[in-house]
Amino acid sequence: MEKDKNGKLKIGIYELTGCAGDALLILDCEKELVSIFKAANIQSFLMAKSDNIDGELDVALVEGSVTTEKEKEELLDIRKRAKVVVGIGTCACFGGIQAVFLDKKEWEKNFKKVYGDIKMKHVKPVQSKPINAYIEVDYYLPGCPIGKEQFLSTFNRIIRGNPPELYGFPVCVECKWNENDCLLNKDIPCLGPVTRAGCGSICINHNLPCVGCWGPVEDANLTSEFKLLREKGFDYDFIKKKMATFSGTGMADFLGKLEGEKK
């Protein structure tokens, strides 16, 4: 990657559809904020500054999922301008809560139910999808929101030209490090085994089951988790809803298959 005349990489931070929690988290790194702006040339960061330039970039950090045609165009443009694109947050990585609907027909039905037959003048809504539905994504930084530690170390690696180094294992690993008793063994529906670690098992530390907000871990055994919860007596639809909430399109295929088996 090329550096600017001050020896810094040009970086843009963008927000698509989401709660802006990831951008907010970056701003919330108060102690490190000066270092972040010193270490890189932040060209665009709508939440933090007004003099944004949409030019060539070394790295684009993109939060949120794509829910309108306009966002789709914006994303394609970011990809064109940036050498490296990093998806930050569960929405960008997996589609987020707004991507829970399983198939297009169901989405259209729901859309109509909420908005009726009105014609959208300025935006053309599309079904929520993660950014990799439209562009090639170099790195993912999941989390809802992303973690401070995780963001700072990833940001630091990226501006040095290194790929991120994230935990590739499920929440259970951190949960055991924190010496929690397994909630699944107490018949509490916990998604720890299928969810990516990095949060420090914060919910389970407070005796609340994992809801899967960091999105599915690569090696998730969804079938076993599903059947285990079924055996513990949880209702089919309850498990489906729980598993689909944060995993967006990441779980859609799996749940679609289950749907098929049910019929």
Binding site: S35, R157, E165, P170, C172, K176, W177, G192
Partner: peptide
């Protein structure tokens, strides 16, 4: 293998497991 959740808990709680991984954490800017 079909049932294993690959959660790593058996290894984390085992008194004789001892494998580890190493990660670099550089301080930002410094």
């Amino acid at each position: 293998g079909d049932a294993c959740l690959a959660c790593g808990s058996c290894s984390n709680v085992c008194p004789t497991c001892n494998c580890y991984n190493i990660m670099d954490k550089q301080c930002l800017g410094g």
